[in-house]
């Protein structure tokens, strides 16, 4: 079995470095930061970490059904493809900033992209 991006870039330590960078980009983005109003920042950061770990092919137990349930209240508030695209943008930019090679960023983006329909409740 080939190594996951998660293992190639250094596992948990690398993801920890990515979480603050990624979450800061998301919170600074007026297109999507309204969805985070009133949320607990620590819990949110832990969720962002779980998301990044999953996108990088690291250990996780999230199912499509979890993704669907976890975002249903946001879909009701209007979460759509444009918002998902914005998050994908920040994912790519974060990994680039950390010096992750383009082909690995592509792999991570593909995994994240595979959750689109579940996240958006389609």
């Amino acid at each position: 079995m080939s190594q996951s991006v998660y293992e190639k870039i250094g596992g948990d330590v690398a993801v920890n470095a990515a979480v603050d960078l990624f979450y800061r980009k998301v919170l600074a983005d007026d297109r999507i930061n309204g969805f985070f109003d009133g949320t607990d920042m620590e819990r949110q950061a832990a969720k962002q970490k779980a998301f990044l770990t999953m996108a990088l092919g690291g250990p996780n137990n999230y199912t499509g059904e979890d993704m669907r349930k976890g975002h249903a209240h946001l879909v009701e508030k209007g979460l759509n493809d444009a918002h998902f695209d914005a998050v994908m943008e920040h994912l790519g930019a974060t990994l680039k900033e950390l010096g992750v090679p383009d082909d690995l960023i592509g792999e991570a983006a593909a995994i994240a992209e595979s959750t689109r329909n579940d996240v958006l409740g389609k």
């Binding site: 620590e42 832990a46 970490k49 779980a50 250990p59 996780n60 137990n61």
Partner: peptide, 10 residues
């Protein structure tokens, strides 16, 4: 518990 991978801290 939730993620069982050290990520969610629950």
């Amino acid at each position: 518990y939730s993620c069982e991978s050290g990520a969610c801290q629950s």
